[in-house]
């Protein structure tokens, strides 16, 4: 967005910022990226009891080109890594990444030859959600934290 660089940092751009951030965080569409056990808690978070739809997020897009959020749910193995990075690159800006669970954050209990020790070695992660697997409420809490983070973003930086 180029117009705000001309206008500078004043009331007009901060209000615009608030509006844009509100729009972005209220309808974050996740790319369905369930890899392992955490994917089940992600599916349950979208179901009726925990209900991600109240955040506007129940539409898990199969195609990364229509998604803004990648929830890496599960262990990333060395064989899967190129696919993860390719999907991340296929997503359009602005995009965010949540590392859900212990395996996506740090490799979890699998400190072995085939596991990537944390997806943050390859992708910029915005929120880490610990747990093995984290409860659906923990995922929702992580998403709310991401919403707060998006609310603090400056237009000029994105």
């Amino acid at each position: 967005m180029g117009i705000e660089t001309q206008l500078g940092n004043n009331v007009l751009t901060t209000s615009l910022e608030k509006l844009v951030n509100w729009a972005r965080r209220s309808s974050l569409w996740p790319a369905g990226f369930g890899l392992a056990c955490c994917a089940l808690e992600m599916i349950v978070a979208a179901s009726a009891r925990y209900d991600m739809a109240r955040f506007g997020m129940e539409v898990f897009r199969p195609s990364p080109r229509q998604a803004d959020l990648m929830i890496v749910a599960g262990t990333v193995t060395k064989k899967m890594l190129p696919a993860v990075i390719r999907i991340y690159e296929q997503m359009l800006e602005p995009k965010w990444v949540i590392a859900m669970g212990a395996c996506a954050s740090t490799g979890g209990i699998f400190d072995t030859y085939a596991t990537v020790q944390g997806i943050d070695q390859y992708l910029p992660v915005d929120v880490y959600i610990p747990g093995c697997p984290p409860r659906p409420e923990a995922l929702l809490y992580g998403i709310i934290k991401l919403h707060e983070k998006i609310g603090r973003e400056k237009l000029l930086e994105r």
Partner: peptide, 23 residues
């Protein structure tokens, strides 16, 4: 297949029998 191969069988050889239960 193999995109979720985490090396679990090898990891279990380094754990005691009780420690294998969470695996």
């Amino acid at each position: 297949i193999g995109f979720l191969h985490r090396g679990l069988e090898k990891l279990a050889e380094h754990k005691t029998y009780h420690q294998c239960i969470p695996l």
